[in-house]
Design a protein around this nucleic acid. Sequence first.
DNA 1: CATCAACA
DNA 2: TGTTGATGG
Length: 338
Amino acid sequence: MGVDIGDLLQRSTIEVSDLSLDIVAIDAFNTLYQFLSIIRQRDGTPLKDSQGNVTSHLSGILYRMTNIVEAGVKPVFVFDGKPPEWKSSTIQKRTETRENAKVKWADAKEKGLAEEAYKYAQASSKVDATIVEDSKKLLTAMGIPFVDAPSEGEAQAAYMVKKGDADKIASQDYDSLLFGSPLVVRNLTVSGKRKLPKKNIYLDVKPEIINLKESLDELGISHSQLIDIALCVGTDYNEGLEGVGPKTALKLIREHETIEKVLKAKDLEIPNLEDIKEFFKSPDVTDDYSLKWNKPDSEAVISFLCGKHDFSEDRVTKALERLEASSGSGQSTLDKWF
DNA sequence: CATCAACA
DNA sequence: TGTTGATGG
């Protein structure tokens, strides 16, 4: 998923508290997928309510958002709209991989291969319409705004950062940088202590920030050339050149300056190349949004999570108290929050 | 991912 | 106070 150019970029580790008072545009699809694949029981089954509805994403939103809001972050979720047509083969491929994983999950479970089963269970995760709808409902009740992008969420989020309506984008993908976001935070929604499998070692996964301009300066390339590098490696919209990884791509673009010249020299083609480049540079975005953070509607959260999805009222109430305390009501963050 | 209780 | 393993829904 996304583009594999991370090794080329300048990344620096930060603390969540370094994002205090920042408006962070969260790549909703990316984050929800992360929650769905990670928040699972040991056998790989996601959290579910008594009716069988998946609730892993709701757990993730409630607790993780409470924690980052408590650290002073003002999150806004940005949801995907209609993907561009050149994404259809990638989408189809993902569907196939997912269906495949479901079969392998069942197979591994039957054979008692726990580790394999877990891996394929994770790969079976899907952010479907219900997941999106439930997430929006919970966010609204928690007082956290969201934006519906006309096209790709990361493109909309990048636009919001460039416009000054948000400070940074949170996503595990690097696509936001191709869409021109000056700052991208990774590991914001997956940070914490992670146990290394089979070993007695705990790894501290901390958020890291990528500065687009610094990365470009360090590499000595333009933004357009970074897009060209990504196109060589492969994006959600094209396959990439055979045997070309980030390092080779950088070399090729340094040598030939543009992807057009690379392709000419190698007598290769990338379908829809001009359209895709244009899309990265000026994607379809909207100004039709308003960012307003409200105090949580505790009753709504409780009736939705506890009444409808079997969450423990004790736990939800505790999270709500923390959320309410940090989102205003006498705290020092009051005027910044509203 | 998170919380929680049990323990050193 | 911090680590650990089980559980959450």
